[in-house]
């Protein structure tokens, strides 16, 4: 039993999403009023009631959201916000106090990670120990909102309005990470990984130890690029190539192989739009025009770091 778990915050987040839907529906000036309201309403419903709905119904709900997003029926709000003059004036007035609520989020995350898990009465814990880090961040966000409202003396309505403005700027990309996680699950069920591992193995002369290392590292990176998830690639590629060839056939060190192999996979994560929560959502969140700007900024690092990992493994995996 725990008082605050993921479900508490799914309900809160759902309420915010539904409030966005309502604001859009009431906004006569909104260019795509009804379809946009429907999209955020459906997402809000999946957050609030997703746990108790039949999975098939949620699946069709996601399908409906996809159709709305793909047919370009999602608009952004033209809600009025403050202008630069007003902002400079209130920045002057509030000063560095403006940073406090923003810093409260990481502060709560740190404290929460250390303390929240230990607070319990009679077998009821304050925070769900299984999801400590996500829950702590959410608690931090709620505390920061309270502090921000107190500091600015703004009504809650203003915060919801500003939040839904950014939400609409992010748009459908927000649910891409969830959809990709679902796709990864379907790939795993269909056994896509085993097929890819087999192909790599057949295409390269892996009887040479150094070629086996190269096949493994490239396999990790390419498969991560396809799936957008290094963890999913790890199970498949390490099982199919790494353990078979590097450890069993050539006697490599499994700890070195796994540690560096995972990091080679992360280099793939830096390069792929499939890793939407790391690469596309931030681009939307920062209101960048080029959706691939984050990937472009990361590409030189990803390639250089991949080369580093490859060489490091070549030199070390058969030596230690």
């Amino acid at each position: 039993m725990s008082l605050l778990g993921l479900n508490t915050f799914y309900i809160l987040a759902g309420a915010f999403l539904l409030a966005t839907a309502l604001r859009v529906a009431l906004d006569r000036a909104h260019a795509r009023r009804w379809s946009t309201a429907l999209f955020w309403g459906l997402l809000g419903a999946s957050f609030m009631f997703g746990g108790s709905m039949p999975p098939t119904a949620v699946g069709y709900l996601v399908l409906a959201m996809t159709v709305l997003a793909a047919s370009g029926k999602l608009g952004v709000s033209r809600e009025r916000t403050t202008g630069r003059e007003e902002r400079l004036e209130s920045a002057e007035r509030l000063g560095d106090r403006l940073f406090w609520p923003a810093l409260l989020i990481p502060a709560t995350a740190v404290l929460g990670g250390l303390l929240f898990g230990r607070i319990r009465w009679h077998g009821v814990s304050l925070v769900d120990p299984g999801n400590l880090s996500v829950t702590s961040v959410c608690i931090g966000a709620v505390l920061a909102l309270a502090a921000g409202l107190r500091l600015t003396r703004a009504p809650l309505r203003a915060a919801v309005g500003e939040g839904s403005r950014i939400l609409q700027a992010v748009g459908w990309a927000l649910i891409l990470p969830q959809a990709l996680a679902a796709l990864g699950g379907l790939f795993a069920r269909a056994g896509v990984g085993t097929v890819v591992a087999g192909l790599v193995e057949r295409a390269m002369p892996t009887q040479y130890p150094s070629v086996a290392v190269a096949a493994y590292c490239f396999g990790m990176m390419l498969f991560t690029i396809c799936l957008g998830n290094a963890f999913a690639a790890f199970a498949v590629i390490t099982g199919g190539i790494g353990v078979q060839l590097i450890v069993h056939a050539h006697g490599g060190n499994p700890a070195i192989m796994a540690a560096i192999g995972m990091l080679a996979g992360y280099c793939g994560t830096l390069l792929t739009p499939m890793a939407a929560n790391f690469n596309l959502v931030p681009a939307m969140l920062l209101e960048l025009e080029d959706k691939n700007a984050v990937i472009k900024a990361q590409a030189p690092i990803a390639f250089a770091l991949f080369a580093f990992n490859l060489l490091l493994m070549e030199f070390c995996v058969y030596r230690f």
Binding site: T56, A57, G59, V134, C138, S164, P177
Partner: peptide, 24 residues
């Protein structure tokens, strides 16, 4: 659709922090 829905719901935690952060 069932499998998609099930995984979509169990992975809500990926999106959760971003949504919770927006109002503040």
């Amino acid at each position: 659709m069932g499998e998609f829905g099930r995984l979509f719901v169990t992975n809500r935690f990926v999106t959760l922090p971003a949504v919770m952060m927006l109002p503040v």
